[in-house]
């Protein structure tokens, strides 16, 4: 039996815009296996970021259930949700979302502070993580002193602070140039392979196709189709042959 890490059941999300109700998600059912690299693809406004927020417990669905590791997220207490965000998931955002008042090192240690680690443990781990993403020499720079690619690397190091089992990446390459984008994708893929982290990425970056095990196409708040690895390779071959 497959080890399902994320499962959504008829997830609906509605936003109220004045007197109008916008249905961003209209009954989403997906299952994600442990260790998979999944890309949620779709044009902007398709609902992929909304789904990303639901899976990461960053927002509550209007209807339906989200299960992570077999836990029904709607039944968790506030403290359990905070612990879930702290230990189980690492978030990477399009706009990095670093705290600009804290250095790269300070950003990476923050989730460890929330996890109750000692200062010594935090420093050792932050140094290790920043080294791993290639920022060992810029550890005490503020985010404003770093390039976009470097900031995203800090965000990746921060996402890994408490050894999460899931990495959620919301358009991690959208603000980066092609080469830097590739480097970031390679880095995330490496984590996926070497550390067995499940990667769920919302994107409309075609470069992500290359590394994904499956692609979930979202359109108008529903799952349009799910493609897996072999289908993707054929499509890439077609694009490459043109």
């Amino acid at each position: 039996m497959a080890d399902i890490v994320v499962k959504t059941e008829d997830v609906v999300k509605e936003y109220r815009m004045g007197s109008n109700i916008l249905r961003a998600l209209d009954g989403i059912n997906i299952e994600i296996e442990r260790g998979e690299y999944i890309s949620l693809m779709g044009p902007s406004g398709s609902g992929k970021s909304t789904l990303f927020n639901m899976i990461g417990a960053l927002d509550r669905p209007t209807e339906g259930q989200v299960y992570i590791d077999g836990q029904n997220m709607s039944q968790l207490s506030q403290r359990q949700i905070a612990a879930f965000r702290c230990h189980r998931v690492g978030y990477i955002f399009q706009s990095y979302n670093l705290l600009h008042v804290r250095s790269a090192h300070g950003n990476v240690t923050l989730p460890m502070i929330f996890a109750g680690m000692t200062e010594k443990q935090r420093n050792e781990k932050a140094e290790k993580l920043l080294d791993m993403v290639g920022l060992g020499d810029r550890m005490y720079h503020l985010p404003d002193e770093l390039s976009g690619g470097q900031r995203q690397r800090v965000a990746i190091a921060r996402a890994l602070a408490n050894d999460p089992s899931i990495i959620l990446a919301d358009e991690p390459t959208a603000n980066l140039d092609t080469i830097t984008g590739h480097e970031i994708i390679d880095l995330i893929k490496r984590l996926n392979i070497e550390q067995g982290v499940t990667v769920i990425s919302a994107t409309h970056d075609l470069k992500m196709l290359d590394v994904s095990d499956r692609i979930v196409d979202i359109r108008d708040g529903v799952v349009e189709r799910v493609r897996n690895r072999d289908q993707i390779e054929i499509e890439i071959g077609e694009v490459g042959g043109e």
Binding site: C86, V101, G116
Partner: peptide, 30 residues
Amino acid sequence: MQQRTPLEEQIDLPFVESLRISFQSLKIRF
């Protein structure tokens, strides 16, 4: 679906840690 270890509860941080973060924030945002 397999049930992993149940989710723990998030801990409270010691007061001195909050104090340190807030002063750091005031200092850098001087």
